[in-house]
Design a binder for these strands. Structure first.
Lengths: 341, 341
DNA sequence: CTGTTAGCGCATTCAT
DNA sequence: ATGAATGCGCTAACAG
């Protein structure tokens, strides 16, 4: 069994050609004679020659690898997002390096450094829910590594980003609840740092104001997306003198925890208290009492778009040396999906 | 703004040393004078020198990258498994290349070729549910890429693998149902190709025989893990003259589909019909009527163990040139977790 | 203690 | 039409 890896040198030696001739022959270079080309290609096939990618990576200063940094694959949103990225990467003959921050900023920094060291050609990032300083992200620009953010994007103007616009859907969600007669609508929102959370609150207040419903700030609670924090939020809301009859939760995981809490407190879901949420997780289909509606945020489409932008950037970079001066800020419309009328 | 990437050459030129001296100084080589070492290290820091990893990868014939190939990250089992691998990889200063086969053999082959081309130092693989030919897997050995399989492992003796032993837990699961008075216990199993499915059926028959319960092969159905196939299986089972009062399903996803089907057919879950399953998905905690019990298969531990074995192999490979002659076949005991008494 | 040289695999420029 | 030489960045064997 021949186990040695075949190199150009090996082929050259056997055929008594120079390495450059062999290299050219394999690339069907016009200046190489047909006979020679055939000889070389045949032997290459016979010896099962395959170009050493690491050598190419090294020489071309390109690794044909993109890095993906996201909070956690356990969240179905992100595990679906990976698919969009993988699909686009495969089309472009790229591989995908993965790193989960688990919403830990230090971990996020470490991963990004590791990816930079690996010389990934580009990065797709969804930042941790606690990331407020962007220095480690901006550093990437200095290394000339193009970055596209998606879903959880930083509040920076000079970056490429794809995220979900939930404002319309949020408006619809709240109007939907109001139409069903709810007047006291609670909000279990995420950390105030997250742009989407600010948007959510703003839209909520907008709609209520427009519908001339009194806004009670006591009904709006920020949590950190953990089950414990959701339970605490629920406790606060349910203990109010006039507790909400409906609650808007930042995502389906929080909704699940909230619903569970409500159930344990003998509340009838969708009767005593209703929920509307975000993410539209497939899993909610299996619940007997799912949230009434959930805002679909299209993780696959978001991440796919992000990947496409990244590859466009890589393409451009090949042709020009200019820094790009315009930045993609793509918004993908979220859609309210009604589960129960 | 200094944007040029610093190399040894650059430092050497500025300090008028040779490249090798600079290299040694940076590695604190004992033969380099303290003064020189300090000079070099200071300038290196100042210029923000970082060794070019791709050059190192190339030279050392190592990429500090491992590949992970698995069916789908959407399954929480695998998205948890990734954590075990990532954790171990990080400890060893490795990065993780990811590829999902989506249970498509061709995709699986493509991914493996891509990973081989990327010269990953090792691979961790969970094969697709349809993979019966192992040629593309065995090929890796010829490239000297160590492989450790986990969870969905091939039936090959000369490979390293980590999987879950579900026999004891399956026995307990069935005894649990029998103790609750069930005599007609259905099985919705997975594809017959999967070793774990064969084991499941075998244990099922064993237990029934031992308990002197008549075995009705009509109660055992293989499916392909899709919702449609699960519904078909349920339809068949429920249409039997004597339908089962309890069903053992291959995993919680199948259980969810089965439960949903039963609910739509007005059956009371855990009353008219009970379920016991595998995977112990966190999500089932949120169901009002979850499976009575589920077998925990410890994805994190399985994958972590697989990763540890892989790094041991890599370690060994550094020290000796021998092929390993013994193979790790690790079994991690599954545990029956009771959700409802 | 430090410098010179070679080489990893490949593409490419410059000769011939 | 082909070969020789160069260089990518780094390490290490060899030479003083």
């Amino acid at each position: 069994m021949e186990n040695k890896i075949t190199t150009l040198k090996e082929i050259a030696k056997r055929l008594n050609f120079s390495i450059s001739t062999v290299s050219r022959a394999l690339h069907n270079h016009p200046s190489i004679g047909l006979r020679t080309t055939m000889q070389v290609q045949n032997l290459a096939k016979e010896l099962n020659y395959e170009p050493n990618q690491t050598a190419l990576f090294f020489k071309q200063q390109k690794t044909h690898t993109i890095g993906v940094v996201l909070p956690s694959l356990k969240e179905e949103f992100f595990s679906q997002a990976i698919n969009g990225i993988e699909d686009v990467a495969q089309l472009n003959n790229y591989s995908v390096l993965i790193g989960q921050s688990h919403d830990d900023i230090e971990k996020e920094k470490q991963i990004i450094v590791a990816m930079k060291n690996h010389h990934v050609d580009g990065l797709i990032i969804s930042i941790s829910k606690h990331t407020k300083e962007y220095e480690h992200l901006l550093a990437l620009e200095r290394y000339n590594i193009p970055v596209v953010f998606f879903d959880r994007v930083p509040e920076l103007p000079k970056v490429h980003k794809v995220s979900s616009n939930i404002n319309t859907a949020t408006r619809q969600a709240i109007e939907f609840l109001i139409k069903k007669g709810h007047r006291r609508i609670g909000v279990i929102n995420g950390p105030d740092e997250m742009q989407s959370c600010k948007d959510r609150t703003k839209t909520y207040m907008d709609v209520l104001q427009k519908k001339r419903i009194k806004i009670d700030m006591g009904l709006i609670i920020s949590n950190d997306l953990t089950p414990g924090s959701t339970r605490a939020a629920m406790q606060t809301l349910l203990k109010l003198k006039y507790p909400p009859t409906a609650i808007l939760t930042i995502n389906d995981y929080v909704a699940l925890d909230a619903i569970q809490y409500a159930r344990k407190n003998k509340l009838k879901i969708n009767k005593d208290i209703s929920f509307v949420s975000y993410a539209n997780l497939p899993i909610t289909n299996y619940l007997e009492h799912p949230p009434l509606a959930s805002v679909e945020q299209y993780p696959y489409e978001q991440s796919k778009k992000a990947a496409q932008i990244l590859f466009e950037l890589l393409e451009k970079r090949n042709n020009t040396n200019d820094k790009e001066s315009t930045y993609n800020h793509i918004l993908i419309e979220g859609d309210l999906v009604i589960h129960k009328k």
